[in-house]
């Protein structure tokens, strides 16, 4: 064995090929089957896609690096299920490009945050977390309510999402900017189209309390309120869920 190696280390290309070969095996065995074994991701016929406003909110969540302190993955442990809710299923992040499971809980898990608190609570909390949770160490995000949400390129965002496998229709892509506006303006004519395209379960509300303006606060709160609510699969009996 050592004699063989003694010859191998005299050949640069041989060493290169050996390194690539030896290093590739683990990834191939562990990752490739995840795409082919169909039990890896559960079936959930009621799974819906993010609306343009929720997707924009998700992009703000990504932009601000919220994943550094908040996980979105409830583990199959008793205390986690009792603290946060039913454990997370793979199907729940099926349309998450990228996933935001996170690795650290400086703040609590957010996988089941949707509709746990009111929109008003979220707005106050995001403007200054210490107004509602005095011990909090979360940064204040007051400027979100001042920033107009950029909607002009939302169609392109949906198109890119479709390219990586999220089933957005042509109508969704064509109306992305209007739908983003409509979802946060319940009394406007644009509101109906959102429900029509994304289903009756869609939440249409003035998330930041000001329907006349579409802000980054609207988008982020809309996203936080949909967390854990894209499908009911996790709330069904265990037999329907895992494997």
């Amino acid at each position: 064995m050592f004699g063989y190696h003694y010859r191998l280390e005299r050949k640069a290309i041989g060493l290169v090929l050996a390194i690539i070969g030896v290093a590739s095996i683990g990834g191939i065995v562990e990752i490739a089957p995840l795409f082919t074994i169909h039990q890896t991701v559960e079936e959930a016929p009621d799974m819906r896609v993010y609306t343009p406003l929720e997707l924009a909110g998700r992009n703000i969540y990504i932009r601000e690096g919220c994943y550094a302190c908040h996980s979105q993955m409830i583990r199959t442990l008793r205390d986690e299920v009792e603290r946060y809710g039913p454990y997370s299923l793979a199907v729940e992040s099926k349309y998450d490009h990228p996933m935001l499971w996170g690795s650290k809980r400086t703040g609590p898990d957010l996988a089941r945050l949707g509709e746990k608190y009111s929109d008003e609570w979220h707005v106050v909390h995001l403007k200054n977390p210490r107004d509602v949770v005095p011990e909090s160490v979360m940064p204040a995000y007051a400027w979100l309510a001042r920033n107009e949400l950029r909607t002009s390129d939302l169609g392109a965002h949906l198109r890119a999402q479709r390219a990586v496998g999220v089933p957005y229709t042509d109508a969704m892509i064509a109306n992305a900017a209007t739908d983003a506006y409509g979802q946060a303006a319940p009394d406007s004519s644009a509101a109906e189209g959102v429900v029509e395209r994304y289903g009756k379960a869609t939440t249409v509300r003035a998330f930041d309390g000001a329907p006349e303006r579409l802000t980054e606060m609207d988008a982020l709160v809309a996203y936080l309120q949909i967390l854990g609510r894209l499908t009911d699969a996790a709330h069904k009996p265990v037999t329907a869920a895992k494997e």
Binding site: G26, G27, E30, I31, L34, F35, T40, V41, N59, A90, V91, E92, S93, K94, Y95, D96, H97, P98, M99, W101, D153, A156, H157, R159, A160, Q161, A163, V164, G165, V166
Partner: peptide
């Protein structure tokens, strides 16, 4: 990943969910 456009800094990862999580931690 697939960029939103050539004029956009934003892209969407090719993988999603569990496959993305495994690739990321690999």
């Amino acid at each position: 990943a697939v960029p939103v456009s050539l004029g956009s800094a934003k892209s969407y990862s090719l993988f999603s969910g569990v496959q993305d999580a495994m690739t990321q931690w690999w």
